[in-house]
Design a protein around this nucleic acid. Structure first.
Lengths: 259, 259
DNA sequence: ACGATCTCCGTACCGTGTACCGGAATGCTC
DNA sequence: GAGCATTCCGGTACACGGTACGGAGATCGT
């Protein structure tokens, strides 16, 4: 699994691709293209969904499309731009019904935002491993930002507070789903199930673990391990964290001047 | 920058290395080793601190130590185990003064936890890019877990709630510092400063951005961009998020049965 | 002195992103 | 219809990655 950076390509070329700015509309010489950007992006997303970001190589994507590796470079400047396009593409899946983010109580709206991001990361785990310090400013990212801001609009918060709040909620989801996903990824990478890994590790831990040095861990660890290993554990973490977060937001909404 | 997985090696071998279980204490034949695990780990941490996780290759670490690449494999089974050792090693920097996490109000204690994790990730940004679905259960990770649990002990919370809460706070820090760090990383990877990148991108965005479709973004974006681009912006995000989180925790502490 | 055992490491294999260049297909111009 | 600029396609090659393999030399117990 590799971390890819978004926004590593030429900004002009990236923006043109993201917004699908038509090149020359007139008919030009040369053979008709048997391939286009959308098909490449779709194939890359399918591949990354199925086998993870580490399986996403130009050769693999090309093979998936039945073309040579270098053919991709006719349509996409490089892997960096492809990753940008993949991300903006899947962001288009968010909020198919806009009303869900703009109507109801602010608590419901923020829950919708969190849940939507959660689901998206579950569908496309590779998106977690993208470093979006230079986000691909494509149409779907813009729409996402707009709708999430609307979810916190009209609460008497300042513009900066609104931005901070949206970032906080989406960041929380990113962190939480990351913890969940990393366990699943580990299973695929190591080929060992969680229980097998634990069975192989626990005896050695028992040898070195000093319950007198770590009394609280000795007390909490087993209980938490038991309780949070079940299938619904991710839901538990998500729900618990979101409730705390929303309670904190409620305090802010009640008194916006507190921060 | 690559995401590395912790816990990819043989559990038995990994645990023996993490806890530095002595092998055969008697003197054996063969030349004296000119290298040991600690020196390798220290060199690897230095390298990753300075140049990022993507620069961390076995060849580079070996070169740093003035030995051949394959020499490392005499002391460490592979790169996966080396990463485990690196992480547990830097976790040892946390909480040099244990009292800070065990005394004072719970709000102060949790602030200390968050701040300590924040500082650690700033010192060792590569740690953010480790997928810890199978955490290296070394002595320093154990100590970290113990101390962070103590920070939320005695508040009337259940064991599971304690574990969830610690995970929530550290997850929040991870997410927040990630956003900050990714910007700095992007600058190094692309060689473009944030302002240069924005200057190159903004004209294209202006061409395609439709203020009527995205009115809220049009209103909030510029203000937030202005306000949160300054040097202290990371601090702002961190402080804002932590206050919301702690306010939410206060509601839980006041009424532990609510979740 | 011998043999077992250990440290060190050169070579090699496969996989990566992509620069470079040649060959084939196409549509515009004349 | 001929010529040609332009475009698509993809084979080859390079530097770099982790590490399997096996050999050379050092050092100990016997």
């Amino acid at each position: 699994m590799a971390t890819e950076f978004t926004g590593t390509g030429d900004p002009a070329r990236s923006m043109a691709l993201l917004w699908r700015t038509p090149g020359e509309p007139v008919s030009r010489p040369g053979p008709r293209a048997g391939l286009d950007v959308d098909r490449i992006v779709a194939a890359a997303v399918r591949l990354a969904d199925a086998e993870g970001l580490s399986a996403l190589s130009m050769r693999r994507v090309a093979a998936e499309l039945g073309v040579g590796a270098m053919t991709l470079y006719t349509h996409v400047p490089g892997k960096g731009e492809l990753v940008d396009l993949m991300l903006d593409s899947v962001l288009g899946e968010l909020y198919p019904a806009e009303e869900a983010v703009t109507s109801g109580s602010w608590r419901d709206r923020l829950t919708t935002v969190a849940r939507a991001n959660w689901d998206l990361f579950l569908r496309h785990p590779w998106a977690l491993h993208l470093a979006t310090g230079r986000p691909p400013l494509g149409p779907h990212l813009m729409r996402k930002y707009e709708l999430e801001l609307r979810a916190v609009d009209g609460l008497g918060l300042s513009e900066v507070q609104m931005d901070l709040l949206v970032t906080l909620v989406t960041g929380f989801v990113r962190g939480t789903v990351g913890g969940v996903q990393e366990r699943a990824d580990a299973e695929r990478v190591t080929g060992l199930g969680e229980d097998q890994w634990w069975a192989a590790t626990e005896p050695y831990l028992a040898q070195v673990f000093d319950a007198e040095r770590f009394p609280t861990a000795a007390r909490v660890g087993p209980v938490a391990g038991e309780e949070l290993q079940a299938a619904f554990a991710p839901e538990r973490s998500f729900a618990f964290g979101l409730e705390r977060l929303l309670d904190g937001v409620a305090a802010l909404v009640a008194d916006p001047a507190r921060s």
